[in-house]
């Protein structure tokens, strides 16, 4: 479902003397349906950069990214948007929402965008919020004032509310307690069981061992660069 071939990435800092920073070269990766692949490598080696290129918010310098048969590299924005709406889910580390929108609507939004009726979308959102132990009294409030762990669970609920065929997970268990971590791992295993192709970054080694079928070390995709260079 995810096919990455010979992918490369550079950042050009026009306002800092046009410095060109190569951050990735020759990246290859594939994820099949029902499989969970973990990205590993030291901090700054390009795990998030690779994930962001697959999601489409970083532009590759070269190479190919195919998701469910669609070429993402160089795709028109509306193709990427359509793919994100029905196929490609993403749980980032940060919750970015409009202030004042109730949590239940934040979680239901991916379904509403797919045309699911308000009540059905809300029922599925509530079900996930309940599983992820977000207290019912918080459902009608905006998540902007929630704790870090609560915001992360809202993000996860949003990522799992629609059965996306492809899921990108950036540290989905990072700031969770043991109980909620179990819930998230169960959601991941359920997604695998229904055939989702999952690519994840997990610093939590035990979580990684429990859900990942394979690991890909991105250090192998890091181009040689002058000492002292730090990826953006």
């Amino acid at each position: 479902m995810i096919h990455v071939e010979n992918l490369s990435k550079t950042f050009t800092l026009h306002n800092q003397g046009g410095t060109v920073i190569p951050v990735m070269a020759g990246a290859n990766l594939h994820v099949d349906p029902g499989e969970c692949v973990g990205l590993v490598g030291r901090s700054g080696s390009g795990k998030s950069t690779l994930m962001r290129m697959i999601h489409g918010n970083y532009l590759p310098a070269g190479g190919s990214i195919r998701i469910a048969g669609v070429q993402m590299a160089g795709a028109e924005p509306r193709r990427v948007i359509a793919l994100r709406r029905d196929t490609l889910g993403y749980v980032s580390q940060f919750l970015r929402v409009l202030p004042r929108v109730p949590t239940v609507e934040v979680v239901a939004e991916p379904l509403r965008a797919l045309g699911v009726a308000q009540l059905d979308a809300q029922a599925r959102a509530e079900c996930l919020l309940w599983r992820l132990n977000i207290p019912r009294r918080l459902w009608s409030l905006s998540p902007t004032t929630f704790s870090g762990g609560e915001q992360q669970r809202v993000n996860i609920a949003r990522g799992f509310v629609h059965p996306f065929p492809v899921l990108l997970l950036d540290e989905p268990t990072a700031s969770l307690d043991a109980q909620n971590r179990e819930v998230v791992l169960a959601l991941i295993l359920e997604a695998k069981a229904r055939g989702a192709a999952i690519l994840g970054i997990f610093h939590d080694e035990e979580a990684r061992a429990r859900v990942c079928d394979r690991l890909v070390d991105v250090t192998g995709f890091t181009p040689a660069r002058p000492s002292g260079g730090q990826a953006a």
């Binding site: 950042f11 050009t12 026009h14 306002n15 962001r52 489409g56 918010n57 532009l59 924005p77």
Partner: peptide
Amino acid sequence: GLTDQVLDDPQHA
């Protein structure tokens, strides 16, 4: 381009 791409990975100076 795509909004989050232009904002997260702007290409032009």
